[in-house]
Design a protein around this nucleic acid. Sequence first.
DNA 1: TTGACTTACTTTACATATAAAATTATCCAT
DNA 2: ATGGATAATTTTATATGTAAAGTAAGTCAA
Lengths: 157, 157
Amino acid sequence: MGETGKSDARQRNQTRFWLSVLRLHSDIFAELNKRMQDEVGLSLAKFDAMAQLARTPEGISMGQLSSALKVSNGNVSGLVTRLIKDGLVIKAMSTEDRRSFSARLTDSGEQKFLMARDAHNSILADILQQVPDEDLTAANTALREILEEMHAGDALG
Amino acid sequence: MGETGKSDARQRNQTRFWLSVLRLHSDIFAELNKRMQDEVGLSLAKFDAMAQLARTPEGISMGQLSSALKVSNGNVSGLVTRLIKDGLVIKAMSTEDRRSFSARLTDSGEQKFLMARDAHNSILADILQQVPDEDLTAANTALREILEEMHAGDALG
DNA sequence: TTGACTTACTTTACATATAAAATTATCCAT
DNA sequence: ATGGATAATTTTATATGTAAAGTAAGTCAA
């Protein structure tokens, strides 16, 4: 005995941490996604894609978009198809490489993104309204630290 | 001026927090899900459902399972169907209420869950191997605090 | 009892995600 | 130039998730 004691405490700590992250993500995501859909007609997936496109007004390739969003190529393919159907995004064939496509926001997409960004901020403010600044700051410090440590290794694929 | 100063800092704090939660969730989820699939042939969705079923060996109704997992009824319906096809779960019609079904793990499901739980713990340990105990503890404290504050209101639906 | 409501669950239509195969275009060594 | 490897993207099959409609069973007032 004694050998497993420290290990078990560590394991409980890890599990507690993961459960907290899961719970926070699930609670915030559900509310934010639902209200974004209701208030501006955009899912978070679409909003995230548009946010990346807004950062690169000159256009961005499907592959780069997929890397930036950290989702699969196939997923981006469908997402962009739906955004095009919504009239928010356009795709142009690259002049240099005919395999490649450059996507960017339409004018209407740009306008919608600006409204959506404001809505996103104010919904998040609602969700976190009971959380004091110092608690947010403490969490930010702790989470940034853990993200850095996780990627120092890098145990992640 | 002066009016928006505090508000903007708060907003940045909120956004930073949400981005950190998103990133942590995405990084850990992707790795944990993939390795659980590779090493024990279970997605996290299936593992989570089995964990709940393991907690209630006497059986649990579809509706209670859906509440416990915080996912929709329709989702649980499909998830349980797939787990039954895998031979890990069985469903029996309730004797009191013929609308209701009680789901529980099969013997094979119980055994698989015990292995899966060990795998889950050790994969999580791998992912967090570079994170010192005190950093996990600090994050746990900060996150629990925020979860409580969020649900104090309750701004969440 | 009957008829209205509620409850438990499934089904359907769709969005979002992955992995793997398919497609098409480019590049490079010969 | 040709042929084989590589690269960018789409397509397909499947899992996971929601919301909304559908089905069937229980409840309860009159």
